[in-house]
Simulated scan of single mutants.
Amino acid sequence: MGLFDVKSVAIVGASAKEGKVGNIILKNFLQDFKGKIYPVNPNYNEIYSLKCYPSISSIEENVDMIVVAVPAEVVPEIIEEAGKKGVKLAVIISAGFSEIGDKGKKLEDKIRDFINKYRIRVIGPNCMGIYDPYKGIDTFFVDRERLPRPKKGKIALITQSGAIGLAFMEYASYRNIGVSKIVSYGNKIDIDEVDMLRELKEDENTESIFIYMEGLRPGRGKEFIEIAKGIDKPIVILKAGKTKRGNIAASSHTSAMAGDYDVYRNVFENLGIIEAESFHEFMIYLKIASYLRK
C-alpha cells in the first residue's frame, strides 16, 4: 500500500472564507477526491454542506490523512492528536518552523517526537504538499482559476521548493503535459527524496522522475544511492546550490545546507542520472519526456 493510498482526509484549518488557504484546499478535495472529507475547524458547524468537526479526535470514523493549515504554534498538538487517532499521513502546509530560526526548530523537534511515537508519516512543514490527479489529492493552495492543474500523465516531480513545484505545474498545465505526482516537501522533517524515490519506484503511474534538489539530509546519501541504483526509470535532477552563493540561497529556504556540489555531480554521473544545468534545461527535459509518451 502506497503513501498516498488514502480513503479519507481531514482538512485541519478548513474555512468557508474565499481565498483562505483552508478554503482553497477544501475545494480542491471536493472537486476530485473520491473518499470521505472531514473539515476541521471549531469555528464552524458546517462548510459546503459538510459537517465541520471541532477537532480530529471528534471524528468518529477512521481518518487516513490530514492536511494541516493552522498557525505553526498549534501544529505539534495537531500531530499528536492525529497520531493518537491512527492517522497514517500528515501534510503540514503551515510555515514558521526551522526556516525562521530556533523557535521554529523547537516546534519541529516536538513534531519529530510525535512522528517517532505514533509512526505517522509527515510531508512538510512549510510546503505546498501533494498534487496527485490519479488519487484526487491536491493540497496546493493556489486557486485553480489562477493555476490550472495538469492532466493525468506519467511524469513525477519531487521538490523541496514550493515555488519550483508551482512553476513546474504551470508549465505542464499550459503545455498539456500530464503528470503522475507533484510533491513539494519543504523542510522535510520526515518524508524526503529517499522516501519519495522508494514510492515512485513502485508507482505504476510514474515512468519518469524529475527532482529539484537543494540537499540531502545528513546520513541519507548512502540510502539515496542504493534506491536510485534500483530504479529502472529515467531520473532528471536540477541541483540547487552549485555555487557558494547558491548554497546560501538554498539554505535560507529550508534551513538545510545544499552540500558540496562536486560530490553530488559525481554521484549523479555514476548513477546515470541526468543533470539539468538550469531550470530552462530542466523544462526542456520535461518536454522530451512528454514527447516520448506520444
Rank of each mutant, 00 (worst) to 15 (best):
D138N: 15
L286H: 09
G221Y: 10
A72M: 00
D64V: 03
K151Q: 11
F33H: 04
M257Y: 14
A69N: 05
E214P: 08
S278E: 08
F141Y: 12
D113E: 15
L157F: 04
R112E: 11
S94R: 02
I248V: 14
I56T: 03
V12A: 04
E60T: 12
I177H: 13
G101S: 02
G19L: 10
K244C: 02
E275K: 01
E60L: 11
K188Y: 09
V74E: 06
K154D: 13
E207C: 01
M128K: 03
K85F: 08
S184K: 03
E281R: 04
G230A: 02
E77G: 08
I182W: 06
D109G: 04
A249E: 11
I24R: 06
P71V: 11
R112L: 15
S58K: 12
I273A: 10
K34I: 01
E108R: 04
L166H: 10
A69R: 02
I123G: 02
G178N: 05
S290D: 13
R144E: 14
F210A: 04
G165S: 02
G165N: 07
K135W: 00
S15W: 06
G101V: 04
Y185H: 07
G246F: 02
G136A: 09
G178Y: 07
M65N: 00
G96V: 07
I182G: 06
E275C: 03
K27Y: 07
M196H: 09
A16H: 05
G178R: 09
N176I: 10
G104K: 05
L238D: 01
R119I: 04
D143M: 08
M169S: 14
D260Y: 13
V6L: 12
A95W: 06
N187K: 04
L107I: 13
R175K: 14
E199T: 11
N116W: 06
N187R: 00
Y291N: 10
F224K: 13
M128Q: 11
I79Q: 01
M283S: 11
G136R: 10
N270C: 08
L147V: 12
E193D: 14
K239M: 10
I209T: 07
E204C: 05
P76M: 04
C52W: 10
L89C: 01
F33G: 07
E275H: 03
I235N: 02
I248A: 14
S173R: 05
R175M: 03
L157M: 09
A228P: 06
G153N: 07
K7T: 12
D195L: 03
Y44T: 11
E108Y: 13
K233Q: 08
N266G: 15
K84W: 05
E81W: 00
D195F: 00
G219L: 05
K34M: 10
I177S: 11
I235M: 00
A163C: 02
N205C: 06
G272Y: 06
L197M: 12
I274S: 01
F29R: 02
F282I: 01
D109F: 08
L197T: 01
K106G: 09
E193A: 01
V142H: 08
K151S: 14
S184C: 12
P125K: 12
I274V: 15
